[in-house]
């Protein structure tokens, strides 16, 4: 288990707060200035520290590939993405160090000022669908039903593949569709030229 700095701060705050509160509940000290100050730390300062850093650690944890794969219907996606022999787009990009442990989030996060918020709201929708629909379904049943909600936007690909590199422009189809690609009228993956990012999921 890897704990980042924010997780360590959250845990330290929780331990400090718990020690103060357990002391207060067990020893039942006089309600003097020292006790009030201790309670300010135990109920206010330390829990707020824990909440702030714990929330940040939680948000960061939701970006990790293991988090996405922790629902059983996502296991094949996780397995394929981390398979060194897989030639699917998702696996190829997961092997790129820039994507690291957050390869699912990097590609599926929305772009723009409110991209993170919109993505998190979309994640809540995933949890809702999982709890209401997919939780009791087998992998085979789920595979037939799971689909991307909207066509994958080319703007996500263009965050790295900027469409300005000479090598990229040398490809005839890229040059011919440049205007449509930049306008988002043509996709790269899915129904686009590069096919599905998780090709195994489209096989019968």
């Amino acid at each position: 288990m890897h704990l980042d700095a924010f997780a360590v701060i959250a845990l330290a705050g929780a331990v400090a707060s718990a020690l103060i509160l357990i002391w207060y509940l067990v020893a039942r000290p006089q309600l003097n200035r020292v006790t009030k100050l201790a309670l300010l730390l135990g109920i206010g300062v330390f829990p707020l520290t824990t909440a702030g850093s714990g929330n940040y650690a939680g948000f960061e944890a939701t970006k990790h590939r293991e988090f996405c794969g922790s629902c059983h219907v996502m296991t094949p996606y996780l397995d394929d993405a981390t398979d060194p022999k897989s030639t699917g787009l998702a696996a190829i990009h997961t092997r790129n160090a820039q994507f690291g442990k957050e390869s699912c989030y990097t590609c599926h996060a929305d772009y723009g000022m409110f991209g993170t918020v919109v993505t998190k709201m979309g994640g809540m929708r995933h949890v809702y669908h999982y709890l209401m629909t997919y939780r009791k379904k087998s992998l085979a049943e789920a595979k037939a039903e799971i689909h991307i909600r909207e066509p994958f936007r080319s703007s996500t690909c263009r965050r790295c593949h900027t469409t300005t590199a000479p090598k990229w422009s040398e490809v005839g189809d890229h040059a011919a569709l440049l205007k449509e690609l930049r306008a988002g009228e043509v996709g790269c993956v899915g129904e686009g030229c590069h096919g599905p990012a998780h090709p195994w999921s489209k096989q019968p």
């Binding site: 845990l11 718990a18 509940l25 824990t50 939680g58 944890a61 990790h64 988090f67 922790s70």
Partner: peptide
Amino acid sequence: LRASAVLTLVALAMMVWSVLRPTPLPV
């Protein structure tokens, strides 16, 4: 104040759980 302390401990327990086991339910 005792009720507040107990509620704080409950909230902290949930936060610690989510930090130590960052899966959808605890988070």
